[in-house]
Write a protein that binds this DNA or RNA. Structure first.
Lengths: 214, 214
DNA sequence: TGTACATCAGTGAACGCGCGTTCACTGATGTAC
DNA sequence: TGTACATCAGTGAACGCGCGTTCACTGATGTAC
């Protein structure tokens, strides 16, 4: 075998799929150290390529970071979809609606716990313009991004008659806030040590609160 | 006048109170750019002093950052105390308890909006060990830090008979999560543009949800 | 009250580091004739 | 089917930058005699 391991040596001059390799290196960096760890030079190093080779595929370091952010958001959507798919069939519309909101929240929290670096990257302040990322898709396999999945679930509450339509506007913001706050405090903040071990339990209590309070 | 303005020229060899000057420069940097902006060199520049002079007063850049973080937390506590002090006297214990929880939450949100950089610094992940900051006091003028103020308020809910004692343990985590999440999403995240203008209104709705859901 | 001296706050210069980015280039690929 | 050539992915070297930190130093202060 001529191709060996750690810094993946090539035997061809061309890389093959450097764009994907850089993106995957960027994801690995974000996974380890959050958004601040996504460095162009380090990504090229991991891809076994000269630093400036990156500029064939990304306009700048910011551009790579945007791509990593978008892929992280896709992964959040995927985690939500997985929870939604686990809802047992045959529920009443009201129960299904409630279960959907819980599933979206649970997926969010599970992702935050499983992939804290990607989670922080997905929702980090973008130092420059926060784009609605027109070129970088943020949706999961089902074609909807995390925010859309949440809105769909909250919409079901109204459709099922659990939530008065008058309270609907902005309700998703309240639910998102609760779950996001817990995730941030535990994954990336001062509650890591005390609450970390009981993260899932607190998550469920938090979702109870949201359900009752919405 | 020999002492002029912007980079504050001294006419004495000694600075006078460099420690405080560096801390204030650090606060100014955090105010502008959050925790990542707290740089030793930049702080000394603002204080009109050689870069290494900082090491007479802070062991390292991390040490300065800890000090800035602690002072930011004190400021959060102060904002909460201000809201608590505005509670009208003569309320029933139940109403006072509810008003206290709201006041703590409102103070938190107001601070996040008024001082986003300091807010982010106060609750940022500390890259190295998260200390309970034994040497850096995080309390407000009243002597209690933000977390303690929140716990006090939630305790009142139990004392006033609004919250069953069985639900008390960890309840402050749920309340904190909700408020923290909204603050982060709006101040430092993707909801800045859409929700920013209605921040206070959403804050009150969120506190309604917490009150009902707890 | 005046002088000698220890203390220690701030200086000046330098270090090594890793970053993002630009330049002119080289060499493999795939297409046109 | 074979050759000439345009394309463009990746190279090698270098840039300027700002950072945190260390070194041996200088000079004002305040205390001891």
């Amino acid at each position: 075998m001529s191709t060996s391991s750690a810094p993946p040596t090539r035997d061809t001059y061309r890389h093959g799929d450097l764009r994907r390799a850089l993106l995957e290196a960027g994801m690995a960096l974000a996974r380890e150290g959050g958004p601040a760890a996504v460095k162009l030079r380090e990504a090229t190093r991991q891809a076994g390529v000269a630093p400036n080779a990156a500029y064939r595929h990304f306009a700048s370091q910011q551009d790579l970071l945007q791509a990593v952010r978008a892929e992280s958001l896709s992964a959040v959507a995927k985690a939500m979809e997985d929870e939604l798919a686990a809802i047992p069939p045959g529920l009443s519309p009201a129960d299904h609606a409630r279960a959907s909101v819980r599933a979206v929240g649970t997926g969010y929290l599970r992702f935050a716990q499983a992939e804290p670096g990607l989670f922080r990257t997905a929702f980090a302040r973008s130092d420059k313009l926060i784009q609605a990322t027109p070129e970088w898709p943020t949706a999961g396999p089902g074609g909807r991004n995390p925010y859309e999945l949440l809105c769909d679930a909250v919409d079901q509450l109204v459709a099922a008659g659990i939530m008065p339509a008058a309270k609907r506007p902005g309700a998703e913001i309240l639910a998102w806030s609760a779950v996001h706050g817990l995730a941030m405090l535990v994954v990336d903040g001062p509650l890591a040590a005390p609450v970390g071990p009981h993260f899932q339990a607190f998550g469920q209590r938090l979702l109870d609160m949201v359900e009752k309070g919405l």
